[in-house]
Amino acid sequence: MSAKKSKGFKKEAGTGKMKSIKGEKPEIEYRFYNPIDTKYILYSEIFKKGSDFEKNINLLFSRLIPEISSERSENKGKHLDFVIKEFDNFKNKLQIFSLLSSRRESFIKSLEDVGFISRGFSALCQWRLIIGLGGVHPEETSMTLHHIYGIPYIPGSAVKGVTRHWAVLKFADRSGQDVNRISNALENGENLDIEVEGIKFSDLIEIFGTQGKVGRVIFMDAYPLREDAINLKIDIMNPHYPDYYSGKQPPADWQNPNPIKFLTVEKTHFQFYLISQDSSLLQKSEVLLKEALGKFGIGAKTSLGYGIFEI
């Protein structure tokens, strides 16, 4: 690699002022592209491959963002239609789920070989499910898609989180104590003398862990059972008082509704797995998880019926 003379700057001792200097700068053999160049490079690569090759849906959804236009809502709808179309093309051609299932079973088997126990069950989302709606996304509304496989899934952190929240609500309701009191005690590992339907509060501490202690139950990511049974659908939320929500005016009936489109998963089976070295804690965790999925729901907008599962 050759070098060439270039001008630079450095701070002058004692004064803090910048002083011009001459130095050796290696001549690089690559270029930095600006966004407009990147767009055309991406387009040219897609056109070279043709429109029928399988694409990573997560990249299409979160990175290939359409140009801004005056008809933003219509433009976003077309983008989501494009994502769904490409996903249908993707799922009908690849057998990724058989490979994913084999990998997951191999992982569980390796844990069972060293003393862990697993429990799994499948559940059907009765209507629609949206995980990660409030995540960072250039078009306001997001959705959790696997960054490698490009498929919708429920992260294990979300599965554990909703199970823990359901357990807190259940214990608070049955004991008559404040929800925050129950949650803080669980977070800090403070054992309360409460037992609900055969599950002690000490069991919750062991299952979920505390700030200083790891939980003894592993909540696995939940994946759809089959690629051909994943249904992506566009849904709409329709804020009727946009000027009120933006802090400009009080709510009033003459303000124009502002429909916001977002992506959901509809009527899809998911496979859930729990892993632990304690069979008793594993059984109690499964009970709480099934109750949470069937009675409380997981993801966004559960109060409107989203994310409710049929076990």
Results as ranks from 00 to 15, higher is better:
Lys7Trp: 07
Phe9Gly: 04
Glu12Ser: 15
Gly14Ile: 15
Gly14Asp: 13
Pro26Ser: 12
Ile28Tyr: 10
Tyr30Gly: 04
Asp37Ala: 13
Tyr40Cys: 01
Ile41Phe: 09
Ile41Thr: 01
Leu42Phe: 13
Leu42His: 05
Tyr43Lys: 13
Glu45Tyr: 12
Lys49Leu: 12
Ser51Trp: 10
Asn56Tyr: 10
Asn56Trp: 10
Asn58Phe: 12
Arg63Gly: 04
Leu64Cys: 03
Ile65Tyr: 04
Glu67Ile: 12
Ser73Phe: 00
Asn75Met: 11
Gly77Leu: 12
Ile84Met: 05
Asn92Trp: 09
Lys93Cys: 06
Phe97Ala: 07
Leu100Lys: 12
Ser102Phe: 11
Glu105Thr: 03
Ile108Asn: 05
Leu111Asp: 09
Phe116Arg: 03
Ala123Glu: 08
Ile131Lys: 06
Gly135Leu: 10
His137Ala: 08
Thr141Arg: 14
Pro152Ser: 10
Val162Leu: 08
Val162Arg: 06
Arg164Phe: 01
Arg164Gly: 02
Lys170Asp: 05
Gly176Pro: 09
Asp178Glu: 11
Arg181Met: 07
Arg181Asp: 11
Leu186Val: 12
Gly189His: 06
Gly189Met: 07
Asn191Thr: 10
Leu192Arg: 03
Ile194Thr: 01
Glu197Asn: 12
Lys200Ala: 12
Phe201Ala: 05
Glu206Asn: 15
Ile207Phe: 13
Gly209Met: 14
Val214Met: 14
Gly215Met: 10
Asp228Pro: 04
Ile230Phe: 09
Asn231Pro: 04
Leu232Gln: 05
Leu232Val: 05
Asn238Phe: 06
Lys248Ser: 03
Asp253Glu: 14
Trp254Pro: 02
Asn258Ser: 13
Pro259Trp: 00
Phe262Pro: 01
Ser279Ile: 02
Leu282Val: 04
Lys284Val: 05
Glu291Gly: 02
Ala292Phe: 04
Phe296Asn: 14
Ala300His: 01
Lys301His: 00
Ser303Gln: 09
Phe309Pro: 05
Phe309Glu: 08
Ile311Lys: 02
